[in-house]
Amino acid sequence: MKKLQSSIPIIRGCFSIFKIKTAEGFQYRMAGLAGASTSIFWGLIEITVYTIFFKYANNREAGLQAGMTLRQIVSYVWLSQLFFLMQPMNIDKDILRKITSGDVAVELCRPLDLYFHWFAKTAASRLTPMFWRGSIILIFAMIMPLSYRLLPPESLTGFFFMILSIFSAFLLCTAYAMFICTVRLNVALGEGPAYILMLIGGILSGAYLPLQLWPDVMQKFLLYQPFAGYLDIPLRLYIGTMSTDSGLFAISLQLCWTVVFIAAGKVLMSFRLKNLIIQGG
C-alpha cells in the first residue's frame, strides 16, 4: 500500500510531462499537413499497385489464398498509413538532444525515475503526429472515390477489439521506442544500431506489406513476433481477417511484448546510468 501511495506522485509527474509534451506537439499544424500529403500520396500509389496486381496479374488467386480481398487491402493501406505514425521511426528529438549534448545530467537532477520520465515523453511524441497528420489522412481516406475508399469496420465487436488493440499497440510502440532510446544512451554506438532496430520493427510490422500477404511458412512466426502488434493485429481485427476470439489472445500477446520491452529497457538503462559518461563541461 505504501508503495502504491508513493507511486502516485510519480504517475502524476509522468502524466504532467505527457500533457506538456502533447501540447507542444499540437502546435505544429503545417508539419502535419505536409506529412499528411506524403502519406496520402504514398497510400494512393500502394492502392494502385495492389489494384493492378489483383485485376490484371495471373496470380489473382494468390490474394484470395492469403485471405485478403482488394477492398480489405485498401482499408488496410489507409489505416496503416494512419497508425504507421505511432511507430518509432526516430528517437524523440528532445531526448536525442539530451543524450548527445550531455543534458541527461539535468534530467537526472529531478526526483523522477528517468525511464518513466522519458517513457511519458516518448508516448506523447508517438501520439502527437496523429492529431493533425492522422486526422487529415483519415478524413481524406473516407471521402475517396469508392474503389479507393476506407471501408467501415467489418463488425462492431471487431471495431471495439481494434480500439483495445490500438491502445496496446500504442504502449508497445512506446516501449520499443524506449528500448531503442536506452540503446542510444551509449553515445559511442552512434546512430547505426538504433536505426537498424527501428527498421526491423517497421518491416515486420506489416506497414510496407500486410503480414498476411507474406509467405505461408512465415505466417505463424509473423503473428507471434512482437511487431505484429504495431498495427497488423489491430488492422486484422478491423477488416475482419481475425476472429474476436483470437483477437483477445493477440491483444494479450501485444501486452506481453510490451512488458518484455519495458523490462529490457529498464535493465539496460540502469546499467547505462551506472557507467554514464556525461558529455562536455
Partner: peptide, 25 residues
Amino acid sequence: FGQRSQLWWDVPVNDSFDLLKDIYD
C-alpha cells in the same frame, strides 16, 4: 547549469513551472 536549459524549449515558462510542481510533488 548556466549552459544547459532545464525549461521546456517550446512551451510557455508557466507550463514548465506547473510541470515542476508535479514532478517535485
